[in-house]
């Protein structure tokens, strides 16, 4: 069944259209005057003013790697983030922790861990999929560089951005 939308009955003034134009012009003029005298504008002057203080807890900035309170890399190079990453921004080369290391029990660690920030879409799936709570999206959003190579965050850069996260699971600590 076709549904017929009733046409509104217009008055002469409405049909003439010109009064409506004038009314519209009046509205835009009002906004214009308000903005001209600095009352209406809500634009934030970005590099000088920043959102940083009011970023919400769940803000998804650049993905970073974190260490635990014993300075152990949480990442064990399971490559699930590499697998889940929709734009394939993550590249991991796994390696084996040498037997002399005090964390030898963990056996595996990322030899190389690269996130291509040109590709990253900040979706947070890597954080969600990580079984070791090793990768977190922090609040850094202004990721810039002059070359493509600069935009690839390597392991050192990721740990520098991520820092230490304690109070998470202690799966590899035999006492817990």
């Amino acid at each position: 069944m076709a549904y017929v939308v009733p046409r509104p009955k217009l008055t002469l003034a409405e049909k003439l259209y010109l009064p409506a134009i004038v009314a519209g012009l009046a509205i835009t003029l009002k906004h214009f005057k308000k903005a001209l005298f600095g009352k209406g504008n809500v634009t934030m002057q970005y590099p000088e003013q920043k959102w940083d203080a009011s970023l919400p807890e769940h803000y998804r900035g650049a993905p970073t790697l974190v260490k635990d309170e014993h300075d152990r890399e949480r990442c064990v190079a399971c490559q699930l983030c590499e697998f889940i990453c929709p734009p394939r921004a993550i590249r991991i080369k796994p390696g084996e922790i040498p037997a002399t290391n005090k964390f030898a029990k963990v056996e595996k660690f990322p030899l190389e861990f690269d996130i291509d920030m040109i590709r990253c879409i900040y979706c947070g799936l890597c954080e969600e999929v990580c079984p070791e709570q090793a990768i977190f999206l922090r609040k850094d959003y202004s990721i810039t560089g002059l070359t493509r190579a600069e935009m690839v965050h390597d392991k050192a850069k990721l740990y520098e951005l991520g820092g230490v996260m304690d109070g998470l699971v202690h799966k590899w600590n035999p006492k817990k």
Binding site: T28, H31, F32, K34, A35, L36, G40, N41, V42, T43
Partner: peptide, 10 residues
Amino acid sequence: RVSALIQDRL
């Protein structure tokens, strides 16, 4: 500029 001011921008 005018369009911005009309739309409460800068």
